[in-house]
Nucleic acid binder design. Structure first.
Lengths: 345, 345
DNA sequence: ACGATAATCGGTAAAGTTACCGATGTCAAG
DNA sequence: CTTGACATCGGTAACTTTACCGATTATCGT
């Protein structure tokens, strides 16, 4: 910058203003500066800028697992939108481990990122108070925490549970089981939705039919199979199964098929997540669309709004409505298919 | 830092040394400093450190698509290893578009990252010379470029082509087709391997049996189906198909199944990538393991070696050997299964 | 007791940028 | 001619940390 200033007979300050599109500079000088900048292929030093402005133009993303397509899709859409605002994304994986998540968040805080976006696997609220004390804004995605009023983007998980369970009831299932997720908000609320749907239909909630999966988004295939083994040993055997996510459902289905059961005739199965390979499975899997791309986009929108406003804007909560996607794994007795399903399957 | 120094009656410089584990400081003072640091929960300002050291402790990763499990797995393992060295990962997606890739790389260069790791979709070399001129080291993954001697980690793609094609020959296929990938090195070399295997077995290379897919890692399902449609219209119809990647193979298989063909009896199919859901497909898909995790780990290892040495070490090239994974989509006439396949399927 | 060596600490300057406010010049209205 | 408004530009200081080297003290062998 000093060199350019000397060459053009202006001050460094003016160069700085041009580089930041500051209005306080004449048209002619601006053009001269830009020309010289291009000539030298000059790029301002962001570290120095950060030092003086206190901003890094970096956004941190903490997810339980980048391999999970749900989070990969969020990361992708988030990154796309943020890039439009000049922000870049640092990703970090917590492996569904609360302690590791805390370490990661501490690291990201030490780096003084401008904002954090977190799909937390923690069940306590203290860490987030610490984040607030450091004046780092943050947005929760997918998973909320009770007792914490924070920016949030996610799907209505109770509606997920209701939608899936009600669908199983609609296709004629009488004994509906559930492989539940971990103790974070989606797991909890989907169980609640499941129970509510059963109760509303006059069916009894049978605790034996609810299998717990403490780590719902990790090592899911085997766990799904084990859960199905447990369920099939029950008497009477369930004739419908709602799984916390699609990989669990895949594991469960494979086990059932190996045992010679027919899906959906003997047991109908529905998952959640609507992964893009659901319709290529041996039995195409009915699922619930969680709108992962929308979640990323909305989170990015909120993040940019916070970053672009002087004062922290009011806390925002975006709750998306889930969508039922019917495929063969729940198609019994000529039950109707949704329009969306017809297109996909 | 100034505050801590005043409190303890030492200089800022000493604090700085303690914080960086510099040996040039007494045991007692070190402990006193660390105690006070912990008390105040003090975190050094990395922007200021960057300004003076010229390092950001950030690594840039540019991939064509984060949703692709192959790249997601690389991102994950890369990130894990780098974190051990105190580095964090900034990810960026090029959507298999060379121009977008150039923009992204420019942005990352402007941020003065310490090193870039790139799975490039470019076919020219000029951009990389520009990177070198900026003195930013980089490591290529998955895709090499002719005429460029750079650090590289990837799989032996010609061996991939040979392995897959030879396997199809072994199970009795006579007319073997190939849905090839884009014009980047994996696409090119896999075709070469495919041709070599055919020639070595005394089979003729039929150009009609080679379908080109310009964007091999994007929108792959439909393209796989379209390619299969083309292939099935040929006379004589191919009885074996080697696909550039697994999603293409899935699209192709689904189309064939819809047309009433049997896999592998009428046409055997093998893909590449060994995605973790390959064995849950309607016909479990034979594939080639590309060792994506290893690729990420090796790339991280090379990156750390470069970052930790004063002078740039010699250019390193790691070429992994692919591994055949046999599943039902190629199991005809009681062909033997590999040990690995037996475990997986 | 002396000098040599090692261990420990600090001073100065520098890294590249921007915030804040003051300075200058231009022009038109009164 | 003065005044004020507006547009344009620059000076000073600050942001926080580290590299480099010089200074001080402690330790030890002779």
């Amino acid at each position: 910058m000093k060199d350019i200033a000397r060459d053009l007979g202006v001050s460094v300050i003016t160069i700085s203003k041009v580089l930041r599109n500051h209005p306080d500079v004449g048209e002619e000088t601006r053009e001269r500066v830009l020309a010289r900048v291009k000539e030298l292929d000059y790029q301002p030093n962001l570290a120095a800028r950060s030092l003086v402005t206190g901003r890094t133009y970096l956004v941190g993303l903490v997810v339980p697992d980048l391999l999970h397509p749900f989070f990969a899709e969020i990361a992708k859409s988030l990154s796309d939108v943020l890039r439009g605002g000049g922000y870049y994304l640092i990703v970090s994986s917590s492996e569904e481990d609360p302690d590791l998540e805390e370490q990661e968040i501490n690291q990201l805080l030490a780096r003084r990122l401008d904002i954090l976006i977190i799909a937390s696997c923690r069940s306590t609220v203290d860490l987030f108070f610490r984040i607030e004390k450091q004046n780092t804004p943050y947005v929760l995605i997918d998973r909320g925490l009770p007792g914490l009023t924070a920016n949030f983007v996610g799907v209505d998980d109770e509606a997920v549970g209701v939608l899936a369970t009600k669908h199983l009831i609609d296709v004629g299932c009488k004994r509906i089981a559930h492989i539940r997720g971990p103790g974070t908000s989606p797991g909890i609320h989907r169980v609640e939705g499941y129970k509510r749907a059963l109760t509303q239909a006059g069916l009894k909630v049978n605790d034996e039919y609810i299998i717990a999966e403490p780590k719902g988004d990790v090592e899911t295939r085997q766990r799904g199979a084990e859960a199905m083994r447990e369920l099939l040993s029950l008497k009477p055997r369930p004739d419908g199964l709602f799984c916390f996510n699609d990989p669990l459902a895949m594991g469960a289905m494979n086990y059932a098929l190996d045992q010679g059961l027919r899906i959906p005739e003997d047991i109908a199965v529905i998952g959640c997540g609507n992964l893009h390979y659901d319709d290529a499975l041996s039995v195409p899997l009915s699922s619930i669309n969680q709108h992962s791309r929308r979640i990323g986009q909305e989170a990015a929108r909120i993040a940019l709004a916070i970053l672009n406003s002087k004062m922290p804007p009011k806390v925002e909560s975006v709750v998306l409505q889930p969508e039922l996607i019917v495929r063969r794994s729940t198609q019994r007795r000529g039950a109707k298919r949704t329009v969306a399903a017809a297109k996909r399957a």
